[in-house]
Structure formats: structure tokens, C-alpha cells
């Protein structure tokens, strides 16, 4: 299969206006991916499917990922004047990365037996801008998987023929696979809780009954 750079270049050529970014993957698996902008997704994916050298006719796996807002604090060295003398001091610099939701598609070619080409789509944010184009019109196999992502992550796919909850019941309002979801507090706690579970378990501990000291007297009497 041709290199990802070439695929990117050819796709950008075939679909004018499309912006595609290569997301590197540092792990030994070495499966880098293509980040496609939401406005041209369908055209790019159609190109990937129909191009004679690629023929990515099989969309194997569709995944939702939740990336929370992150703040990264880095120390930067700045030069300032202190008492008329120029000194280098370290200052913390706080950077905010807004969170987003992401869908990842793994495309393969059954006709030419190669792959995967991994493509990703990102939403604008995690609250209102959670719209993404659906790939179901191109690949039927995305139908249920996108419904699942809608159910568990709350991404709204436009162009999806039947976007309903699939795993949870219809009355359910949360999106439980989001990283900030808290499930209902409905279980008894383990005998040896720790960390987070311990904090939540404490709320369920009954207070010891108030002792009035009578049992000490009884113990005294019997020596």
C-alpha cells in the first residue's frame, strides 16, 4: 500500500478544499492516522473507497473516544530585570487544551487485501458542538457502531438514517462512556475499598451506636 503521505496528497488533490492532517502514532504498532475535517469527510472517504489503488471497501471498526479538557503546566525560562540585573527565572506557563470527542474508523481493502488506513474525525468541543458527519451512507457497517457511539458518547451524526439509542434504554439521558460520567451510587462496597471507591464507600458506613459507658462498668464488675 502507498504511504500515508501520498494518500493524503492524493486525497487533497481529488477533493479540493479538504484539509487532512497526519496524526503520528509513537507506539511500536506504528499505525498513524489521518485527521479529516468534517466538511469534506464524505468526499474524502468516497475517494478512499473508490480510488483504484486504494479500494478501501471495508470499514472494520468504528470507535468513539472522549478527550477531556486538559491543562498542561510547563516551566519556561524567562529573562527579567531584578534589581537592575538581568536574571533568568523559571515561570510556570499554563496552557489549556479544550476537550473534544473523536471517532476513529479503521478501513481495510478486501479487494486488494491491504490496510489499515485509520481516519479520525473530531468534534468542536464536548458540549454543544458534538456533530459529526456519518459514514453510514458509504459504509453500512458503521450503522450500528455509530448508533452505539451516539448512545455512549453523545456524538450526533448527521446523515445517519436511524440515530437512536442502541444499548441503553430510550429514557436514559446520560452518555455513560464519557470520562466524566458518574454512575448511580447503587452498590454495596467491597470489603477492602481503596482510593476513589473508599471515598464513596465512606458515605455508606453506618455510624457506630453511641456508647454510654455501661459496658465498661460491666467489664469492671467481672474483673
Amino acid at each position: 500500500m502507498e504511504s500515508l503521505e501520498r494518500i493524503k496528497a492524493r486525497a487533497e488533490e481529488a477533493v479540493p478544499g479538504a484539509t487532512i492532517k497526519i496524526i503520528p502514532n509513537a507506539s511500536p504498532a506504528n499505525q498513524p492516522s489521518l485527521l479529516i475535517d468534517s466538511d469534506h469527510t464524505l468526499a474524502v472517504v468516497q475517494f478512499l473507497r473508490n480510488d483504484a489503488a486504494l479500494r478501501l471497501d471495508f470499514c472494520s471498526n468504528v470507535t468513539g473516544v472522549d478527550w477531556l479538557d486538559r491543562t498542561v503546566t510547563t516551566k519556561v525560562k524567562v529573562k527579567t530585570l531584578i534589581d537592575g540585573e538581568e536574571k533568568e527565572i523559571e515561570q510556570p506557563q499554563v496552557e489549556n487544551f479544550p476537550g473534544y470527542l473523536e471517532t476513529v474508523y479503521h478501513l481495510y481493502s478486501i479487494a486488494l487485501k491491504h490496510g489499515p488506513v485509520v481516519i479520525r474525525l473530531r468534534t468542536a468541543d464536548r458540549a454543544d458542538g458534538v456533530h459529526l458527519p456519518s459514514l453510514t451512507p458509504v459504509y453500512r457497517s458503521a450503522e450500528f457502531q455509530e448508533r452505539e457511539i451516539f448512545d455512549l458518547y453523545g456524538i450526533r451524526f448527521h446523515g445517519h438514517p436511524d440515530l437512536r439509542r442502541i444499548l441503553m434504554w430510550d429514557e436514559f439521558v446520560d452518555h455513560p462512556m464519557r470520562k466524566d460520567y458518574r454512575e448511580p451510587d447503587d452498590y454495596e462496597y467491597e470489603p477492602t475499598p481503596h482510593d476513589e471507591v473508599l471515598e464513596r464507600a465512606k458515605e455508606h458506613y453506618a455510624a457506630r451506636p453511641q456508647l454510654d459507658g455501661a459496658e465498661n462498668l460491666a467489664a469492671d464488675e467481672h474483673g
Binding site: N25, A26, S27, P28, A29, S60, N61, P116
Partner: peptide
């Protein structure tokens, strides 16, 4: 494992399990 991502798949008795 080091940061990164991987997709692995095998031919399970029911189909592609990844």
C-alpha cells in the same frame, strides 16, 4: 506500554475480532 495506539485483529470463529 508506551503512549500510542494499536488495532489488532484475528480471525475468530465468528469473524474478525479486533
Amino acid at each position: 506500554p508506551p503512549a500510542g495506539e494499536a488495532y489488532g485483529r484475528i480471525e475468530g470463529p465468528k469473524g474478525e475480532l479486533g
